[in-house]
């Protein structure tokens, strides 16, 4: 059994590097990322899992970081947009989102990009319906979604073989 508190800290892997959070175990991972590690690419929209702006990958799975207590992820691997942007896959998404005008205000974009990564990892050639399902936990108030669906579809084609 492991006892964790603000003195022991909570060890986990953040963007491929071992780190230790000194926040209370019940703190939202979202707040730990933004305030303790100053990774502000993860956005705070609703704090109730509705909007997806705070989505990150934990062990490759898409989760809303506002609904994750940092104490629950000891020794697990968290990937945020800052870590993901160093990858070849990100470059493909970056270009496809720009090309299809899938970014307007940009607030939902980090979550959308990570949702796309999770989707393409599971379905490298998704149908439009699968794309809508894959992005269904992420709200965008600018684009009307069609541009996003096209961006994901374009990325799946241009990045074929990467996922």
């Amino acid at each position: 059994m492991q006892i964790i508190n603000v003195q022991t800290g909570i060890p986990f892997i953040l963007n491929d590097r071992p780190v230790r959070s000194l926040s209370a175990p019940g703190t939202r991972l979202l707040d730990v990322l933004r305030q303790e590690f100053h990774l502000t690419g993860t956005k705070c929209g609703c704090k109730e899992g509705e909007c997806g702006a705070c989505a990150v990958l934990i062990n490759g799975r898409l989760v809303t970081s506002c609904l994750v207590a940092v104490g629950s992820i000891a020794h697990q691997a968290v990937l945020t947009i800052e870590g993901y942007r160093k990858t070849e896959r990100f470059a493909v998404l970056d270009e496809a989102f720009a090309e299809m005008a899938a970014v307007q205000c940009g607030f939902c974009t980090p979550g959308m990009v990570l949702a796309t990564e999770a989707l393409l990892s599971e379905h490298p050639h998704p149908s439009p319906e699968e794309i809508r399902q894959g992005l269904s936990g992420n709200l965008c108030r600018c684009t009307g979604y069609q541009a996003l669906v096209q961006a994901v579809s374009t990325a799946a084609q241009k990045g074929a073989g990467l996922w």
Partner: peptide, 9 residues
């Protein structure tokens, strides 16, 4: 200081 627990079984 409050503890949280990660039991092994």
């Amino acid at each position: 200081m409050v503890n949280a627990y990660v039991p092994a079984d």
